[in-house]
Simulated scan of single mutants.
Amino acid sequence: MRSVVVLAVAVLVLAACARPAAAPALPPSPSPPVTHPAWVACPPGDDDPTAPLGLPPLPAGFVPAGVVICADGLRTRADGGEDRVRRERRGSDVAALVAALRLPSEPRTAEACDLSLVGVVWFAVLDAAGRWLRPGVAADACGKPRIEVRDALDRLTLTTVRTTVLGETKSAAAAASGCEQRWGEMIGAVTAGSAGSAGSAAPAGGADAPKGPVRLCVYTVPASEQGSGKPAGDFARGGLLPADRWTVLRAKLLAAGPPVPCPAHAGRFAVLRAPDGAGGEVYAELDGCHRLLFSTPSGNALRQGSAALAAEIDRP
């Protein structure tokens, strides 16, 4: 019997690594690439790093003199907040990149390929007249962008010429408090599907909470997320709790009894955790059912709070 089990496991491993599981290369478009008369700015973000595999190859008559790369990232502001930005970077030493773009796709291998998703950053090439186009990228034997193109893109010398702010990812207030801008409402997540009861979906492990310094972070849950499978909240306020206040509050939290059936969804919740994240965290619904969730390294425990306890947690 043991040999049969070992053989079955081996077959599953080989099947997971076999060629059909690798992302197939898209056939290049039969149409020529669209050549634009002049560059304006980075287009809206393209989230598919494998899209160049399906684009038409670089035309023989197009002679690149430069490259532009567009990529989204994060940037910390002077006030400590953080923005998501789109950076436009340019380079002119494109000989290696052009040579790599002229390479053909390799024949598909019959050997095993790994399952990693490999792509390339959004880029376009420009000629001396300022015209630009997005060239296709040849595929390797596993249907992924050829390593020569990826290496050439990585080795480019680039200068950032434009940075566009797409939106705020962390406010200055959240940064100053040490809290994240957005956080999952885990009580709603772990009780989703339990029909508002403390039934089988409610964890019933041992309750514990960090003993040392604790940071309180308060979040507001948009109405559109309340009752969803993965509700999340937006930062409202937060900061480190005085040690004496946490000592009293921790004892009251740990003394909470088992949860009771309740169909309401929280519109506000708090997260209490150590500054270094060690020891797990405590979630508290500040309205709705006033439940508590102790998330510890050994598991989760759901308990029942009260309006009075929520008010004490929420006290500025």
Rank of each mutant, 00 (worst) to 15 (best):
V282G: 00
G227E: 04
P37H: 04
M186G: 04
A38N: 03
G193A: 14
A25G: 12
R291W: 14
P52H: 12
S31F: 13
A301F: 05
P64F: 02
P56F: 11
V137C: 07
G130W: 09
P242M: 12
W122R: 14
S3C: 04
V282P: 01
P28W: 03
D154H: 11
G45D: 12
K252D: 13
P43C: 01
T109S: 11
L58G: 07
R102S: 15
S197M: 03
R146M: 08
V85C: 10
C113I: 05
T191C: 10
V121C: 06
A256K: 02
V13M: 05
C17F: 06
P222K: 09
P259F: 03
A100H: 05
V85I: 13
G299E: 12
G205E: 10
T76G: 15
S298V: 14
L292P: 03
G193N: 12
R2H: 11
S31D: 15
L241Q: 08
A266N: 01
D47E: 14
R303H: 10
A25S: 07
V121P: 00
R303Y: 02
A41C: 02
W246P: 00
G136T: 08
A201D: 08
V11P: 07
V121W: 00
S171E: 07
T169N: 11
V248F: 07
G54D: 04
R90W: 10
V120F: 00
I69F: 01
A138K: 01
G227F: 00
C113V: 10
L158Y: 02
V137N: 00
P203L: 13
R89E: 09
A112E: 06
E168G: 13
V98W: 00
L286W: 00
G178S: 09
A270G: 03
G280F: 01
R108K: 07
A201F: 10
R215G: 03
R162H: 14
T169V: 15
A8D: 07
P27K: 09
A207R: 01
G143T: 08
T191I: 05
G288C: 06
G238V: 05
D154Y: 06
C142R: 00
C289F: 03
W183N: 00
L286S: 00
C113E: 09
R75E: 13
P203T: 10
R84M: 11
D47F: 15
A41W: 00
C289L: 09
T35R: 14
L158E: 00
P30V: 13
G167W: 10
G130E: 09
A96F: 03
L7G: 08
S116W: 07
V6W: 03
R245F: 10
G54T: 09
V248K: 10
A128F: 05
A124M: 08
R146W: 03
D208Y: 05
R75F: 10
P43R: 12
L7A: 15
C217Q: 02
L74S: 15
D287G: 05
S295Q: 11
A274V: 04
R250L: 08
L133Y: 00
E180Q: 15
P33L: 08
R245G: 13
G205W: 14
L7H: 03
A175G: 10
L26F: 02
A173L: 13
G66H: 05
L101K: 02
K144V: 14
G66D: 01
L115F: 07
P213V: 14
S224A: 15
A71K: 08
A207P: 09
S171Q: 13
A129T: 15
P210T: 10
T50A: 15
